[in-house]
Amino acid sequence: MDGVINLLVNGLATGMLVFLLAVGLTLIFGLMSVLNFGHGGLFAWGAYGGVWLYGVTGSFVAALIGAVVIGMALGWMMERWVIRPVYGNHVQQILVTLGVMLVLSEMLKVVWSPNPLKADVPPLLSGSWEIGSVILIKYRLFVIVIGLLVFLAVQLVLKKTKIGLIVRAGVMNKEMVQALGIHIRTIFTLVFMVGAGLAALGGALLAPYSGVIFSEMGMQFAILAFIVVVIGGMGSIQGSMLAAILVGLSGSFLAYYLPELSLAGNMLLMVIVLLIKPSGLFGAKG
């Protein structure tokens, strides 16, 4: 029984990390119909930036905030210099964002190190609680809490604030939003930066969770995030959350019982969704 609880916590924590990556992907796709294949690179930069800042400042909070700032800055540059010239051309977008992915992961090796880096859990969050025979690892619970908070915050912003309503209106009808006198490009940039910042936050949270970071981690997690947005439906935040939890849980349980099949299990999930409902669980259109 305690084994199951552990797997549950594990799966949820991984799911939250994937959600942080997927939420930006899906928001950006929904609004700008840009699928950012460089998103995983921002995730990896968040991880490296977080580890580095934690080492320098000794404060985990500063490290998380710094990582988000790094992510947003990179997102700003990326949107402005690379994505903006190719709005509306899907083939070019896909190609160019993968190029960004390539450069971002290689730059990690130049700026930091080509070798994997060790990442420590901050003392306050290390260790675990024991409740009876169940051992709850503090950091994993922390990741779950942060993931849920981000989910709620994103929902709140989209439902209650004017800027959130404008973003949602933009997803539904870009032209009409502009005809109301709203400069949609500014909104694009903003959403792109927020998405990038959340990806970086995910990376920074992942680092102590897995204990070690390496430059290819962006791509690995990006694959999971793509599976999540396909399963959940492109453009849907709730869909991403549900799919991320599914992917996290199936990953953690399969890794325990059938380790060979953990990625295959998620792929199978995606294939089934594509066959039955190509638009995803929460998707409106394919």
């Binding site: 949602r168 209106a169 539904m172 032209e175 502009q178 005809a179 006198g181 709203i182 949609i184």
Partner: peptide, 22 residues
């Protein structure tokens, strides 16, 4: 478009362009 709208021109499109989820 957004600059033209801000000059003081309102637009009611043929398909009404509802933000259906709002």
């Amino acid at each position: 478009t957004y600059q033209i709208a801000r000059k003081g021109i309102g637009y009611v499109p043929e398909d009404q362009s509802m933000f259906y989820d709002l």
